[in-house]
């Protein structure tokens, strides 16, 4: 009995040691490059500081009070939420469909796979440029379609509600390939024997997808949702390149707002508060989502 207990103990100890050794490099690097900046952001958020001066005035929680009443910030947060809901709702289903198609059709559609992957490779400079012409009110693709159907010109990027949705669509276009590859790898991970067995059993593609593919893919779908959630709540690139937050502040996101405060308005103190607030919101949402979905990758054997 005692022997077994000590065996268990020594096993636990060896697990602890192994875990520590395996995790150490990652934890150290994250501590230096991520955790330290987070701490410093929180500490700067307590100061009134223009970002460059040697004097900074400690003002306690004043910035935080301001943040709570900052209409622009909460409006930006609302835009982020819209982006989040649309991203999860569009990107993941489309990506599953594309991955399923590629998985089912096999090597003969390799060319499709490469082309479908292209949007992820394009830099936001090129995307911004191409879509400002493609979505142009005069001569743009959407306007041309609308006019051929007897409609009028469509101003997608210059008007408040549709500008946000136009950019959301472009963001989806850009990120779908990532989730496609992700799910494709997920299919690749499904044991070939399961697949063969089900096909021998006479299951159709549809049945296979619904009863075997999708359930086996579900941990990946859940983690894709978390990734998409975090990505859309801290999104920056294309909004900054395509609308600059405009028209007015209609497409402002938390990250673009924070960037402007910190690097062009000389309000580093308040900019850091915005960043810290954003960090709290994003982490909070992500952990909440994680709890709701529960079956994340790490908890299957708990």
């Amino acid at each position: 009995m005692k022997k077994i207990a000590s065996l268990v103990q020594s096993r636990q100890r060896s697990v602890r040691i192994a875990a520590t050794v395996f995790l150490a490099p990652v934890i150290i690097i994250m501590a230096v490059f991520i955790i330290y900046p987070i701490v410093s952001t929180f500490s700067i958020s307590l100061f009134d500081w223009n970002g460059i001066s040697k004097d900074r005035e400690f003002i306690g929680l004043e910035n935080w009070k301001m943040l709570i009443h900052d209409r622009v910030f909460w409006f930006a947060f609302k835009n982020n939420l819209t982006l989040m809901v649309c991203s999860i709702g569009i990107q993941i289903p489309v990506a599953i469909a594309l991955a399923t198609f590629l998985d089912g059709a096999g090597r003969k559609v390799n060319f499709f796979k490469v082309v479908w992957f292209l949007p992820l490779l394009m830099s936001s400079v090129a995307i911004g440029f191409l879509f400002s012409y493609a979505l142009a009110t005069t001569g743009g693709i959407v306007t041309t379609i609308s006019q051929s159907l007897g409609g009028g010109k469509v101003d997608l990027l210059g008007r408040a509600p549709q500008a946000l949705y136009a950019v959301i669509s472009v963001v989806a276009w850009q990120y779908i390939p990532f989730y496609m590859v992700y799910f494709l790898a997920g299919y690749g991970n499904i044991d070939i024997n399961i697949y063969e067995a089900s096909i021998i059993d006479g299951a159709t593609r549809g049945q296979y997808f619904l009863h075997i593919g999708l359930p086996l893919l579900s941990p990946m779908i859940k983690s894709a949702c978390i990734l998409s959630l975090i990505g859309s709540l801290k999104y920056f690139d294309l909004i900054y390149a395509m609308t600059g937050g405009g028209p007015g502040t209609a497409t402002e996101l938390m990250a673009t707002y924070m960037y402007k405060l910190s690097f062009s308005h000389f309000k580093m103190g308040y900019g850091s508060t915005t960043a810290a607030g954003m960090f709290i919101l994003v982490t909070g949402f992500a952990l909440m989502m994680q709890t709701i979905l529960k079956g994340n990758g790490s908890s299957n054997d708990e």
Binding site: I226, M254, M258, Y259, F263, G271, A275
Partner: peptide, 15 residues
Amino acid sequence: VACMSIPIHVTLIPI
């Protein structure tokens, strides 16, 4: 997960 949530622009100055 928390480390995923950090906006990268705030890390520019410390880094």
